[in-house]
Protein backbone atom coordinates (compact mmCIF):
# COMPACT_ATOMS: atom_id res chain seq x y z
CA UNK A 1 0.00 0.00 0.00
CA UNK A 2 1.39 3.41 -0.99
CA UNK A 3 1.24 6.21 1.57
CA UNK A 4 0.19 9.71 0.63
CA UNK A 5 3.28 11.95 0.63
CA UNK A 6 3.43 14.36 3.58
CA UNK A 7 3.12 18.02 2.65
CA UNK A 8 6.69 19.40 2.99
CA UNK A 9 5.34 22.84 3.95
CA UNK A 10 3.54 21.41 6.98
CA UNK A 11 6.02 18.65 7.80
CA UNK A 12 8.13 20.94 9.96
CA UNK A 13 7.84 21.28 13.74
CA UNK A 14 7.30 25.02 13.93
CA UNK A 15 5.16 25.43 10.81
CA UNK A 16 2.95 22.56 11.94
CA UNK A 17 2.64 24.12 15.41
CA UNK A 18 1.62 27.49 13.90
CA UNK A 19 -1.04 25.94 11.65
CA UNK A 20 -2.33 23.69 14.48
CA UNK A 21 -2.77 26.75 16.72
CA UNK A 22 -4.57 28.69 14.02
CA UNK A 23 -6.90 25.86 12.99
CA UNK A 24 -9.15 26.49 16.02
CA UNK A 25 -8.95 30.29 15.97
CA UNK A 26 -10.23 33.07 13.76
CA UNK A 27 -6.85 34.81 14.05
CA UNK A 28 -3.89 35.15 16.39
CA UNK A 29 -1.24 37.80 16.99
CA UNK A 30 2.47 37.20 16.39
CA UNK A 31 3.17 37.42 20.14
CA UNK A 32 0.55 34.77 20.92
CA UNK A 33 2.19 32.39 18.42
CA UNK A 34 5.58 33.27 19.89
CA UNK A 35 4.41 32.44 23.42
CA UNK A 36 2.64 29.19 22.53
CA UNK A 37 5.30 27.77 20.20
CA UNK A 38 8.29 28.86 22.27
CA UNK A 39 10.13 29.75 19.06
CA UNK A 40 12.50 32.66 18.56
CA UNK A 41 11.16 35.81 16.88
CA UNK A 42 13.40 35.35 13.87
CA UNK A 43 12.52 31.70 13.26
CA UNK A 44 8.81 32.33 13.78
CA UNK A 45 8.90 35.21 11.34
CA UNK A 46 10.69 33.08 8.72
CA UNK A 47 8.24 30.18 9.05
CA UNK A 48 5.20 32.50 8.92
CA UNK A 49 6.59 33.95 5.70
CA UNK A 50 7.00 30.43 4.24
CA UNK A 51 3.41 29.56 5.15
CA UNK A 52 2.22 32.82 3.69
CA UNK A 53 4.14 32.22 0.44
CA UNK A 54 2.54 28.75 0.22
CA UNK A 55 -0.86 30.44 0.52
CA UNK A 56 -1.63 28.71 3.81
CA UNK A 57 -1.76 31.85 5.95
CA UNK A 58 -3.22 35.31 5.62
CA UNK A 59 -1.05 37.87 7.37
CA UNK A 60 -2.34 41.30 8.35
CA UNK A 61 -0.05 44.03 9.60
CA UNK A 62 -1.86 46.65 11.65
CA UNK A 63 -1.31 48.87 14.68
CA UNK A 64 -2.48 47.92 18.17
CA UNK A 65 -2.16 50.55 20.91
CA UNK A 66 0.21 52.47 18.63
CA UNK A 67 2.52 49.47 18.20
CA UNK A 68 2.92 47.43 14.98
CA UNK A 69 0.95 44.20 15.19
CA UNK A 70 1.04 41.14 12.96
CA UNK A 71 -2.09 39.03 12.91
CA UNK A 72 -2.22 35.61 11.22
CA UNK A 73 -5.16 33.49 10.16
CA UNK A 74 -5.41 30.19 8.33
CA UNK A 75 -6.58 30.41 4.72
CA UNK A 76 -9.00 27.95 3.09
CA UNK A 77 -6.02 26.46 1.23
CA UNK A 78 -4.14 26.10 4.53
CA UNK A 79 -7.09 24.38 6.20
CA UNK A 80 -7.42 21.95 3.30
CA UNK A 81 -3.69 21.20 3.42
CA UNK A 82 -3.86 20.68 7.20
CA UNK A 83 -6.77 18.25 6.86
CA UNK A 84 -4.91 16.30 4.16
CA UNK A 85 -1.78 16.27 6.36
CA UNK A 86 -3.70 14.91 9.37
CA UNK A 87 -5.29 12.24 7.16
CA UNK A 88 -1.87 11.22 5.82
CA UNK A 89 -0.39 11.10 9.35
CA UNK A 90 -3.25 8.88 10.51
CA UNK A 91 -2.58 6.53 7.59
CA UNK A 92 1.07 6.27 8.60
CA UNK A 93 0.20 5.64 12.23
CA UNK A 94 -2.55 3.20 11.34
CA UNK A 95 0.04 0.79 9.92
CA UNK A 96 2.52 1.22 12.76
CA UNK A 97 5.18 3.86 12.67
CA UNK A 98 8.84 3.24 13.36
Amino acid sequence: MAFAPLDPVLHNQLRLAIVSLLVGLDSADFNFLLEKTGATRGNLSVQITKLKEAGYLTVKKTFKDNYPNTSCSLSAKGLKAFEAYVKAIKEYLGTGEG
Binding site: A28, F32, L93
Partner: peptide
Protein backbone atom coordinates in the same frame (compact mmCIF):
# COMPACT_ATOMS: atom_id res chain seq x y z
CA UNK B 1 13.50 22.77 14.43
CA UNK B 2 14.08 21.58 10.86
CA UNK B 3 14.85 17.93 11.59
CA UNK B 4 12.54 15.28 10.17
CA UNK B 5 9.39 14.72 12.24
CA UNK B 6 7.98 11.28 12.85
CA UNK B 7 4.21 10.88 12.35
CA UNK B 8 3.62 10.45 16.09
CA UNK B 9 5.62 13.61 16.84
CA UNK B 10 3.50 15.44 14.29
CA UNK B 11 0.32 14.20 15.91
CA UNK B 12 1.57 15.23 19.35
CA UNK B 13 2.35 18.77 18.12
CA UNK B 14 -1.09 19.03 16.54
CA UNK B 15 -2.89 17.85 19.70
CA UNK B 16 -0.85 20.08 22.01
CA UNK B 17 -1.30 23.21 19.92
CA UNK B 18 -5.02 22.69 19.34
CA UNK B 19 -5.40 22.22 23.12
CA UNK B 20 -3.48 25.47 23.76
CA UNK B 21 -5.65 27.40 21.31
CA UNK B 22 -8.86 26.03 22.82
CA UNK B 23 -7.96 27.38 26.25
CA UNK B 24 -7.34 30.88 24.90
CA UNK B 25 -10.57 32.57 25.95
Amino acid sequence: MDRELTPSESLRIIETMIGQAKSSF
